[in-house]
Design a protein around this nucleic acid. Structure first.
Length: 402
DNA sequence: CCCTACGTCTGT
DNA sequence: ACAGACGTAGGG
């Protein structure tokens, strides 16, 4: 692995940001690189952020190319970024938490190994500012720091950080849309990331990268070659298994190495682990719901998103009909909506590495890992289309990559 | 108006 | 089969 690592674990600048913005946190600004900037306080940071983001994007682009080899690279996590951003923004996360998140988030693939590599990564970016350089305090340094002890419960900050353009940029442009979106909408939701206490070591012993749950769960755990779990993991856990299962439980965060998204999920899903699981989701949902409520239907309500929209969505049902179809038999092609219940739909964040994520800007496609199972099926044929809304084999998602 | 993402076409 | 790109539906 050593050689390979490309994953970048960026720090969570988020934390930094958060801190700056509101929290006094414990983190040392320094950690987060940008030493100089680190300290910025107030709005300024935000502004800078944008700039930096651009910078990073460039880097990232390069990075991506370079690193892609492994899967490890997390090139961009545009949405993730968004999420992160959202989370961050929205939430009044406490710094520590945020920090963690950031850290975790950063590398989808797992930071540990990868950490070293480049820090630039879109995802990273959004989490925090990627550090341009050396500073990288990879997890090694700070990870722990982040939080274990510190976390307090939740501070409500409403920091509004918009991260701007996030890093999504995936390749620069990519960022634009999705990533950008995140920024745009800064929500102030409150993220109670409080899990409080969990001790999360940022680095997960195991893979570190993903939620323990994922891997652990029979279903869930898919590791990628490197042994890391794969991005997919992020969302998926199906009802029971991964997510529900407990991915989150303490472990989840603990596992930390997780990609940003993961974190989120955890929250949501696990409800358990993290205090407000819901909140997490909400955060996301705030916007567009990151995706349409990823939650399991059962558990959570995703009020708005999918369900609503899809009215028709219904469980696996493709929503086709619902809306327009009516008109005539020709349903014309109404755009189908995501079922919202399948594993992919439940994922909160984009992997950042799949082609869709990489080309989001031009491709206009959702992350492959997040692509609704139902939608993958051909509309017509699908045969069974509707089938299993609730649980899709998590594995499925993975297939995409490997 | 903007963003996200579905559907589709095209190229490999 | 997959990737890339585009048009555009749909939602905020």
């Amino acid at each position: 692995m050593s050689g390979m690592t490309s994953g970048v674990c960026v720090e969570s600048d988020l934390s930094s940001m958060l801190q700056r913005s509101s929290a006094p946190s414990h983190h040392h600004p320094n950690h987060h690189g940008y030493g100089s900037q680190g300290q910025v306080s107030g709005l300024a940071p935000m502004l800078d952020y944008t700039t930096e983001m651009d910078r990073y994007r460039s880097s990232i682009a390069t990075f991506y190319k370079t690193n892609v080899n492994m899967n490890m690279n997390v090139t961009n996590f545009p949405q993730s970024a968004k999420l992160a951003a959202r989370l961050a923004a929205a939430a009044p996360i406490f710094p520590p938490a945020a920090a963690r998140l950031g850290a975790m988030a950063t590398a989808p693939w797992g930071c540990h190994d990868n950490m070293n590599m480049n820090m630039n990564h879109p995802a990273a970016m959004f989490w925090g500012r990627p550090k341009p350089v050396a500073t990288a305090p990879t997890h090694h340094h700070h990870h722990p720091s982040a939080t274990p002890g510190h976390m307090t419960s939740s501070h409500p900050h409403s920091s509004s950080m918009h991260q701007s353009s996030g890093g999504p940029g995936g390749g620069g442009t990519g960022g634009g849309s999705e990533g950008g979106g995140a920024e745009k909408h800064g929500h102030t939701a409150s993220l109670p990331v409080s899990q409080g206490t969990a001790h999360h070591h940022p680095i997960a012993p195991s893979n570190g990268n993903f939620l323990p749950g994922y891997s652990g769960g029979a279903d869930c755990g898919v590791m990628n070659k490197q042994g890391h779990a794969h991005p997919d993991m992020m969302g998926l856990s199906e009802g029971g298994n991964c997510n529900g299962g407990g991915v989150m439980s303490g472990g989840f965060l603990g596992g930390l190495g997780l990609p940003p998204g993961v974190i989120v999920m955890a929250m949501g899903s696990a409800g358990g682990g993290i205090s407000d699981a819901s909140s997490a989701f909400q955060m996301t949902s705030g916007q567009r719901a990151l995706t349409d409520c990823q939650q399991h239907t059962n558990s959570s309500p995703c009020p708005s998103s999918s369900s609503p929209s899809s009215s028709g969505v219904t469980a696996g049902g493709v929503s086709l009909s619902s809306s327009s179809s009516s008109s005539s038999g020709t349903v014309a092609k109404r755009k189908r909506k995501r079922c919202g219940v399948c594993g992919p739909c439940r994922r909160l964040i984009n992997c950042g590495v799949c082609s869709s994520c990489r080309n989001r800007k031009t491709g206009h496609q959702i992350c492959k890992f997040r692509k609704c199972e139902e939608l993958k099926k051909k509309p017509g044929g699908g045969g069974g289309v509707l089938e299993r809304p609730p649980s899709v084999p998590a594995g499925e998602a993975f297939r995409w990559f490997f």
